[in-house]
Amino acid sequence: MKAAVLYARNDIRVEEKAVPALEPHEILVKVKATGICGSDLPRVLGDAAHHYPIVLGHEFAGVVERIGFGVSKVKVGDRVAGVPLKPCFKCQDCLSGNYAQCKYYSFIGSRVDGSWAEYVAIPEINAIRFDDSIRFEEAAFVEPSAVALHALQHIRFEGGENVAVLGGGNIGLLALQWAKLLGAREVTVFDIDDDRLASASRLGADHTINAKHPDVEEQVKRMTDGKGFPVVLETAGSDVTMRQSFELAASKAKICFIGTPAGDITFSHKQFELMNRKEFTLTGSWMSYSAPFPGREWELTLHFLKQGKLNFKELIFRTFPLDEINEAFDLYRTPGAVKGKLMLLPG
């Protein structure tokens, strides 16, 4: 099979590789669509890969090509979305249903070979079936969508509140859609890119604010009657937006950090004191899993996607054949060139 193999920083080679052999309870998926995630960028453009060589890719969908011994829940020809986490299912965290906190996990596309290839082997429990009404490119969005929904479930979001989403990237625009779907009164998206803010408006944002404008503070005061936002979702992983979330939060607010920071974060003592003064709740959200594995986040994504209540098409910026993966990464090396999800179509 063809696979895009990462050998070192900025060294991806599309080459022939053996089709994975199947262990018991595993299936072989012919990959039809696979995304490039923001977490893949430091692995390719930096030194964050766990080891070399490695085939990355953990957002994917395809068709079951072959099944291994003991497989009973899926059959050859099924269309499936892939679940990348491989928990141990034995530790205390796993037994408590906290699979993302498993200390002994593996992960398809970072610890073991993933979906930037024509075929990937996964446990059958890591395959979520979907029907012909959903395109493969949309099904490859189930994983990032589940990440966004998991954050809202984690903070026990019940709707009826004004929500601020900091960051208009893919996770931010998915969080926007889920907040609206779950009954937010209004959702305001903050970003510094007008194209992203335009996408947010098309996807249902009630307000968009370019955070570079000097009157942001006044806009927020007018919008919230000076109270701030009762729910703040930080999705960019930026030190700027993480500090900004403290400023935007209302008294007794819920702040959730979904974005993963790439460097150290510094708060002034006055900024950090806002947590005391406002008595807001600050939490993080990690991955996309709940019990029973992989969780309602995955089931609900496919349910509402089938009903047409989630829009993933708006998020796809460009698609590339697997052979052109380096051209895709050339776009990431050009500041401002990527305006959404880049997706690979291996087969």
Rank of each mutant, 00 (worst) to 15 (best):
T319I: 03
S39K: 05
Q271A: 13
N210G: 01
I122D: 02
T188Y: 00
R243L: 00
V163K: 02
R296N: 08
I325E: 09
E65D: 05
I125C: 00
G160K: 12
R333M: 14
V55K: 07
M287K: 13
V220C: 00
V5Q: 07
E59Y: 01
L282Q: 10
E158I: 05
R296P: 06
K75I: 08
V63T: 15
A184I: 05
F304T: 10
F89A: 01
N126R: 07
N311M: 00
A4F: 04
L342D: 01
K254R: 15
K306Y: 04
P335V: 01
F293W: 05
C91N: 15
T266G: 04
H150G: 06
K2N: 11
L315K: 04
S288K: 03
P84I: 13
A179Y: 00
L6M: 12
A100H: 15
K75L: 11
I12Y: 09
Y105D: 13
V63Q: 14
L305E: 06
V338P: 05
I54Q: 07
R129A: 12
R318D: 02
E158K: 14
A205D: 12
R13H: 08
I27D: 08
L248G: 08
V220R: 02
V76S: 06
M275V: 11
A337P: 03
V71D: 08
S39M: 10
L22M: 04
D206M: 11
A21N: 13
R156G: 03
M287H: 08
A8K: 14
G77E: 13
F229I: 11
G68F: 11
T224A: 01
A61Q: 13
G46Y: 09
D47I: 09
F293I: 08
N10W: 01
L203Y: 01
T334I: 08
A121S: 14
E118D: 11
Y119C: 06
A8Y: 10
S106G: 07
N311F: 00
L342I: 14
L342S: 09
A139F: 01
A61L: 09
V147G: 06
V83F: 07
L152Y: 04
E273L: 15
H25P: 04
M275L: 14
L22G: 08
E59S: 04
H58M: 09
